[in-house]
Simulated assay, not measured.
Amino acid sequence: MAGEELLAQADTLRAGRRPFVLATVVRAQRPTSAKPGDRALVLPDGTVEGFVGGHCAESTVRSQCIRLLGTGQSALLRITPEEMAEKAEEGVVTVGNPCLSGGALEIFLEPQLPPALVAVHGDAPVARALASVGGALGYDVRPADPLPEDADAVLVASHGCDEESVLRAAVAAGVGYIALVASRRRGAAVLEALGLPPEAVHTPAGLDIGARTPAEIAVSVYAEMIASRGAADG
């Protein structure tokens, strides 16, 4: 696959919210079949599109890329023909692969993970602030009606307009973070009407930072979302 075709394929994967790793050869010590600048895309199922070396190098790249897709962290992969235990330090992973026919490779592995998909429901000032602040944070912000299939978070700020149906759909879909912008009393009433436990929906939404303006409320909601994600990862 030519370089331009490979980059076009990468753009297609990003547009489809499909994760992959971009692998780029940055150094090649002869004898190797790869040369600096060679690239490949590695998909979660182990598919390799492009070229970063022969079968032996490709197998090492594949296994390391699949590992990095789980962490989201980039790394420099060094492959040597010596038999040695894998060594990782400060973003550099060194792997001995006796299968290589001499030479050595250094390949930069860059995971490309889709941004968090945040669905926002409502057209009030707070809802508009949630959309703009989410965009500034680099999230993929979309309307919550209809609910995107792979939404990571659902934020409801519609002042009671069609909120119950959106919340019900989000809970049924198992969305990781669901928030309802409402007073404590109204939020509790909505959950009771839906027959949901308090832990199912974050309401009042956001961390208590003394937020007053729509933008400040949006910041508090995203701060709570980030904190919730960190707690889940922990």
Rank of each mutant, 00 (worst) to 15 (best):
G138L: 10
V118E: 04
V154S: 13
D123Y: 06
L155W: 03
S165T: 15
A131E: 14
I107L: 05
V156A: 09
V175M: 05
V133E: 12
A129M: 03
G135S: 09
G138Q: 08
P143N: 03
V171I: 11
D140L: 11
G102W: 10
V154H: 09
P111F: 08
V133L: 15
L105M: 01
G103Q: 05
V126P: 02
A173S: 14
D162G: 05
D145T: 12
A157L: 04
A144W: 07
D150W: 00
L117Q: 15
V154T: 10
L147D: 10
E163Q: 12
A119C: 04
V154I: 02
E164A: 12
A179P: 05
G102V: 07
G160P: 01
A127W: 10
A170V: 05
A153N: 11
A151F: 08
E106L: 02
A136E: 06
A169E: 08
D152I: 11
C161I: 11
R128L: 15
G160W: 14
D152R: 12
A136V: 06
L147A: 13
E106I: 00
V171L: 02
P111N: 09
P146R: 11
S158V: 06
E163G: 01
G160E: 13
L113G: 03
P114T: 06
A151S: 11
S132T: 13
L113W: 01
G174D: 08
A136T: 04
D162T: 11
R168N: 04
A153K: 11
V126T: 12
V133W: 14
V166K: 08
G174H: 09
G174I: 08
R128I: 02
P114M: 04
V126Q: 10
G138P: 07
V156H: 05
V175A: 06
R142T: 08
A119V: 04
V156P: 05
F108G: 05
P146A: 06
V166P: 06
P115D: 02
A131F: 02
R128D: 07
R142S: 12
F108Q: 13
V120S: 10
D162K: 15
L113F: 03
E149G: 01
A157F: 02
D162S: 13
H159V: 00
G174F: 07
S101T: 12
A104V: 03
L130P: 08
A131G: 09
D140V: 01
G134N: 02
D145G: 00
L167E: 08
A170T: 09
G102Y: 07
E106A: 14
L167T: 03
H159L: 12
G174A: 12
H159I: 00
Q112I: 15
R142N: 07
V156Q: 03
L155C: 08
V126M: 01
L167H: 09
D150S: 13
S101A: 15
V120D: 08
G138V: 10
D145E: 14
C161F: 03
Q112C: 15
A116Y: 10
G102T: 07
A119K: 09
P115M: 01
H121A: 08
A119W: 06
P148K: 07
E163K: 04
P125W: 04
L109H: 14
S165E: 15
V154D: 03
A127C: 06
V156D: 04
G103K: 07
E164V: 00
Q112E: 14
R128P: 00
S165Q: 15
G135V: 01
R168M: 01
E149C: 00
L109D: 14
A129C: 09
S132M: 14
A127D: 11
A116R: 14
E149F: 07
G176L: 00
